[in-house]
C-alpha cells in the first residue's frame, strides 16, 4: 500500500498489473477491430518516416505508430521523437521565399 501511495504522491505512472492489462488490451483490441494488416502498418510507418525526414531528423528507433481511440473514433497515433530540424531545409525555404519577394 505504501509504495503505491508514494507513487501517487510523486505522480509516477500507474504500473499496476490491472492498469497494464487494461492498456495492453485496449491497444490490441483497437488493432484487432481496425483489422489493418501488419505489413501495411509497417509500410505506412516507413512512408511517414520518409516524408517527415525531409524536414526534421527523426530518431528512427524510437518512432512509434499505433492505433488508439480518440473519443468515438479510432485514431492513428504517432510518437515521433525529433533530434533536430534540418537547417538546410530551413535555409532552402528562406531562400525560396526571398526569391519570390
Amino acid at each position: 500500500m505504501f509504495p503505491s501511495f508514494l507513487e501517487k504522491l510523486l505522480g509516477k505512472a500507474d504500473t499496476s498489473a490491472k492498469t497494464v492489462a487494461k492498456d495492453r488490451l485496449r491497444l490490441v483490441l483497437m488493432h484487432d477491430r481496425a483489422d489493418i494488416p501488419g505489413p501495411m502498418m509497417e509500410e505506412m510507418r516507413k512512408e511517414l518516416l520518409t516524408v517527415l525526414s525531409k524536414y526534421v531528423e527523426i530518431d528512427e528507433a524510437a518512432l512509434e505508430v499505433s492505433l488508439d481511440r480518440a473519443d468515438e473514433t479510432v485514431a492513428l497515433m504517432a510518437n515521433i521523437p525529433i533530434r533536430r530540424v534540418r537547417p538546410e531545409k530551413v535555409e532552402a525555404d528562406a531562400a525560396e521565399a526571398e526569391a519570390k519577394a
Binding site: S16, A21, R26
Partner: peptide
Amino acid sequence: MVKNNEMLGVDDVQEV
C-alpha cells in the same frame, strides 16, 4: 486481486 489492482475488474472488462 481486483481490489489490489492486480486483476481486471468487471468494469474494466466492460469498458474494454
